[in-house]
Simulated scan of single mutants.
Amino acid sequence: MAEHVSRAGSATAVATAPVAAPVSSAVASVVPPAAVAPGGPVAGRPRARRLGPGPRRPYARLVGPLLLLAVWAGASAAGVLDPRVLPAPWTVVRTGAELWGEGSLRTDLGTSLWRAAQGFAIGLSAGVVLALAAGLSRVGEALIDGTVQVNRAVPTLGLIPLFILWLGIGETFKVVIIAIVVYIPVYLNLHAALAGIDSRYVELAEVLRFGRWRFVRQVVVPGALPGFFVGLRLAVTGSWLSLVVLEQINATNGLGYMMFQAQNYGQTEVIVLGLLIYGVFGFASDSVVRLLERRVLSWRRSLSS
């Protein structure tokens, strides 16, 4: 009996020996013994290359405008820039302080903000409603989308003479033009986001027997928010771009009117002051929208987060 057991054990050792040798030799050929650290990663393997932009730096978007301002100030101090062509930054700041003390800049600033706010509110509401109606219904898409595409192809500022004939030269036509400029990018981006929602989510909502409002709240809104914020950023910029043109047409106040009057009197520093105020407003409003986007879409993992 003992002899039989010893023969079986030796046979087992002989049978397993040829299997262990190739495995160990294969591992040794792939990973050299010197490269393997006990309890650690392979030392000879190259590190993974970082392809993303890296962590977000606070206030990093201010670097570009501040650098441009520094170059402007340096060129003005060195006498490279002619003050009649482009005044120095301190000259523009001093002019703004004088106009603010007189009260005219405060009045023009408040008027421009109120016009932009009215047109933006109307255009944003119209863009969202039309995009939802066209994106969630084939009938709505047939009635709305083609009309909006035609309106998009027509230059909005080219409609000014027609709207003056319809609405008169006053505040109404200015607000309507701003609203048209705002609603088009909101509609286009929101409608594209609605059309891009994965149909599998819709099928899942149908299987779970979602109601219309629950479907909109849990499927449509999360899927369309990224596109909506893109359109919102474009709309904010568009409202300021249209405002500077509209306030030079039969206006009696506003930043555009102030710049138009400065053109007649050759006051370059006042024109540059108006442009800087528009730029600051545009940069600030875009930053607010971006901050709101990061807060609302905090659940999304992307390169910008």
Rank of each mutant, 00 (worst) to 15 (best):
A73N: 07
A97S: 12
A88K: 07
P89R: 05
A73V: 05
A75K: 07
V92W: 00
A77H: 15
G79N: 05
A73P: 05
T95Y: 13
W90V: 11
A70C: 14
A97Q: 14
A77P: 03
A75P: 10
V71P: 00
A73C: 09
E98W: 09
L81N: 04
L81E: 04
E98H: 11
P87M: 09
G79P: 02
V80Y: 06
W72Q: 01
L86S: 04
V85P: 05
P83F: 12
R94G: 12
A75D: 11
P87I: 06
A97C: 14
A77L: 14
A97W: 15
V93M: 01
W72G: 02
V80L: 14
A77Q: 13
V80K: 03
A97K: 09
A97L: 15
R94I: 08
P89Y: 00
G74N: 13
S76Y: 06
D82R: 04
D82E: 05
R84H: 14
L86F: 03
P83Q: 10
A70L: 15
A73R: 06
S76M: 03
R84I: 04
G79A: 06
L86D: 00
G79I: 02
L99M: 15
A78R: 06
R94L: 13
A78Y: 11
R94P: 09
L81A: 03
G96E: 11
T91E: 06
A77I: 03
R84T: 15
D82W: 00
W72C: 00
V80P: 02
S76T: 12
W90F: 04
T91L: 01
L99C: 13
V85L: 04
W90Y: 11
V93T: 10
V80R: 08
P87Y: 01
S76I: 00
A73Y: 01
A78K: 08
V93K: 08
S76N: 13
V92I: 03
R84A: 15
P83T: 07
A97R: 08
A97T: 13
W90E: 09
A97I: 14
L86K: 02
V92G: 08
E98K: 12
T91V: 15
W72T: 02
T95L: 11
G74H: 10
V85T: 04
W72H: 04
G96F: 08
A88I: 00
L81V: 08
D82V: 06
